[in-house]
Design a protein around this nucleic acid. Sequence first.
DNA 1: ATGAAAGCGCTAACAG
DNA 2: CTGTTAGCGCTTTCAT
Lengths: 338, 338
Amino acid sequence: MVTMSDVAKAAGVSRATASYALRGDPRIAPATTDRVLQAARALQYTTNLSARSLRSGRSGLIGVAIFELDFPYPSEMSAAISREVARHGLEAIVQETSNSKESEIAILQKVTSQLCDGTIFSPGNVSDEEIRALSGGKPVVLLDDLSPDPVFDSVATPCEAGTETAIRHLVDIGCRRILVIGANYDMLAEDRGATSVSGRRLIGCLNAFEVLGITPDPSQFVSTEWRTANARAMAHTLVDSGVEFDGAFCMTDSIALGFIRGLADRGVNVPQDAAVIGFDGINECDYYIPSLSTIATDMEDLARKAVGLLLDRIDGGGVPARTLTADYRLVARESTRR
Amino acid sequence: MVTMSDVAKAAGVSRATASYALRGDPRIAPATTDRVLQAARALQYTTNLSARSLRSGRSGLIGVAIFELDFPYPSEMSAAISREVARHGLEAIVQETSNSKESEIAILQKVTSQLCDGTIFSPGNVSDEEIRALSGGKPVVLLDDLSPDPVFDSVATPCEAGTETAIRHLVDIGCRRILVIGANYDMLAEDRGATSVSGRRLIGCLNAFEVLGITPDPSQFVSTEWRTANARAMAHTLVDSGVEFDGAFCMTDSIALGFIRGLADRGVNVPQDAAVIGFDGINECDYYIPSLSTIATDMEDLARKAVGLLLDRIDGGGVPARTLTADYRLVARESTRR
DNA sequence: ATGAAAGCGCTAACAG
DNA sequence: CTGTTAGCGCTTTCAT
């Protein structure tokens, strides 16, 4: 392994000078800097991240902790964030929390707090206080953190507004009996549900119904795991039990795709028999048959906002926590074409 | 920040003893170990990864470098590897190479060689020699490395055998005029194409045709970028130009899905008008309409093999490079049901 | 403009 | 069984 001492020796300077020169410190004479840089290149020197990080507390690494890597939405989000991080000359490292508390803790305390200059974290099973304790003071930006009073900077998906837009779209195209798939209606009884993504999307629905003068019926709200397979099975159940509906808003695109597939299994056609709209804007929407209308979260925008908040926090300000919301747009495709 | 000295002091032992105790070294008396562990817990101590890594050369981190994080196949693979790594008590960090040489180099020399105990790398634009030089001697396992004589351990997808199975399946169900989508037929002229995934899958096709007594026609092999959108456009082109076919093998599932969608755009139905089969076994196959028949690479098996090779290499043996091939199975679904 | 020296927090010989 | 000691490679005062 070639160390900075080797480079310094080759360039005929001290280790300190080499260190400065390698990082382009203006205090070093251009000629000297050149000599050092050349020596470094000749020796194929690379600075040792552990050593730098140990000494300076900076690694140039940004952590991205996401619940599942093998579903379209989180993986597209991770990709968007990785690219945004790269655009700032830093390196993103993505880790899967697998939605397990144990794993979230391990990531925060082993990697985030020790190694990363900051972390973008999609919290699942860990409280703000735990994050605070585990992250060892390192900056953290949360994704869809819905604490009543946020402790951390965070970026939210446009739950309420997006959902309202979706419902309005279904009504616009003539749907009269709309199902909401993936909702947990009981949740509202407790705390108005504002502290979860599902709760906030539900609230968006209710707002839309209210504005549109529609009185919602609890039976419209269908609870199911947010997974494609569950949504598919739920479609079977609904059709088999003879529930009438001409439109469905699904809490995520993955749910929507499973739901449409489930309807197809029972001979119910989208959009002829029922219109379906999702939420997220994953790539598959465009080439599914039928192509899926959706509330597309602007992932670039989300990434930009999350990384922006994190970098602001890294170089400095003890400003109060900010919460931003990602942009979105309604993308109307075949699944709501009537 | 609480360091090991703090723990040692709290437990009334030396730093060395604390270090041993924390790692459960049997040389330390159980009572002492207990005391240290308790002190550590009380102080919320976590060992500093940079320091450990700097000193011992081990971090417990396994790098996973993958070309794109926002496509189903690579993201499912990353997830499978992450979980397999976790199963061994290590932490996986995933990085996107974005298929750029610059980025591959940065990952190898900044993160792999400095920080990770080993890396599972999906090479795109970087040669074996470059990897050797950049990885600083750290163990590397390649994914689908197709060097004529491999320098590194690697795990390959079952290109030839899988493709043969796919073609045979199409013929079995009665296809007489089969298109191969995503093939680069010219490639064969050069080096028999054995050094790329696309080339090896093409070879699998030709083997199958030969065995089945079919004389392939170059016009059956359709070259296109391995992207859904390109495959879709290619379907348009093919149908518009009146090419006759009753079956298609697509080099990946993503290509297949785009291709089917493109056929649908032109009123060609799968499987009635043409059967389609893909390769990879991504999750979407199951709920696409029509569900997609495919050669499903066993991702668990691939992950197990890759991680196994890497761990073997990490603790030791200078044994010669091994190349393993992941298991696969034919999954017949609606897209080839006639 | 450059160099000497002091550690960052940890581990691993080596003593005792 | 436990403690002493010497660094890992780098950054950063502080001198010069």
